[in-house]
């Protein structure tokens, strides 16, 4: 307990020291605050953007796009993996394609998606989905196929069919994997959404980053990156709590 407290204290100390050193370096002009900004400038920018609500608007757009992408990644992956499990020939046919698509750097797909779908929310969501979905389908499908054959036999001995095998053993047995993949997909969906906003956004944190880099407003850019860090940490914490709740209740 005491060791944990010390570690938390050390973490805060390291972070505070970093901020202090950054501010001192900017004040003493060891670094150029035009390029590197400073914690104080970030704070002033943050208050300004919060007051005029623009930051809220950008965060709202990014989060909306993220949630839609995230839900579609998880829902779509479970649906496709289940489909491939039910129709195993289809699964075997699709597996190498999924492996290739999963190993492809997804940012390479983004320009293509923008050309196909133009600007707006649709291409951004598709970018978000494209980053996470192939890996998730592959993981879920392989894990569904690795269900203990004795458990499958158990359902058959109780008079069950393939639907029972899926609903009673395969799906519930994979809930821990689905939850841990959800945590991985928070980061991936956010990456996809930001790439989409870089290329096709008119609003959102990704748009803010690309806009500020083009206009050399480095304070806005660094603040956007910090907000992105906070958002992803917050989302991770939410999913972590959901995971703990479900696992404690069910397992």
């Amino acid at each position: 307990m005491k060791k944990n407290r010390n570690i938390t204290f050390l973490r805060i100390f390291v972070f505070a020291s970093f901020l202090l050193l950054w501010q001192v370096a900017a004040d003493k002009q060891w670094i150029d605050s035009f390029y590197f900004s400073s914690p104080l400038l970030l704070y002033q920018q943050f208050i300004h953007d919060m007051t005029d609500m623009s930051l809220f608007r950008h965060c709202f757009f990014t989060l909306s796009e993220f949630f839609i992408s995230f839900i579609l990644i998880i829902g779509g992956s479970i649906f496709l993996a289940a489909l491939f499990w039910f129709f195993q020939t289809l699964g075997k046919v699709m597996e190498p394609f999924l492996i290739i698509l999963n190993s492809l750097p997804k940012s390479a797909l983004a320009p293509l998606i923008i050309v196909w779908l133009g600007t707006g929310i649709k291409p951004i969501i598709l970018c978000g989905i494209s980053v996470g979905i192939f890996g998730s389908v592959l993981h879920f499908y392989q894990s569904f196929c690795n269900t203990d054959p004795e458990r499958i036999k158990l359902i058959r001995t109780l008079g069950g069919n393939k639907v029972h095998i899926f609903t009673k053993v395969v799906f519930p047995g994979n809930i821990p994997l689905i939850l841990s993949m959800s945590k991985v997909n928070i980061g991936l969906a956010l990456v996809g959404v930001i790439i989409g906003e870089f290329l096709a956004g008119r609003q959102g944190i990704g748009y803010l980053i690309i806009y500020s880099s083009q206009t050399f407003k480095m304070t806005i850019m660094i603040m956007s990156i910090c907000i992105l860090c906070l958002l992803s940490a917050l989302l991770y914490l939410v999913v972590n709590q959901v995971e703990r709740f479900i696992l404690n209740k069910k397992y």
């Binding site: 203990d148 004795e150 458990r151 036999k153 158990l154 359902i155 001995t157 109780l158 008079g159 069950g160 029972h164 009673k168 053993v169 519930p172 047995g173 809930i175 069910k250 397992y251």
Partner: peptide, 25 residues
């Protein structure tokens, strides 16, 4: 049919495990 291992499903309570066959049928 009783298998080599009990194969009780860890996400179900004992009572719900016992009801598995009744639910299926």
């Amino acid at each position: 049919y009783m298998l080599q291992n009990d194969h009780l499903l860890e996400w179900r309570t004992i009572f719900k495990n016992i009801l598995l066959g009744l639910e299926i049928q």
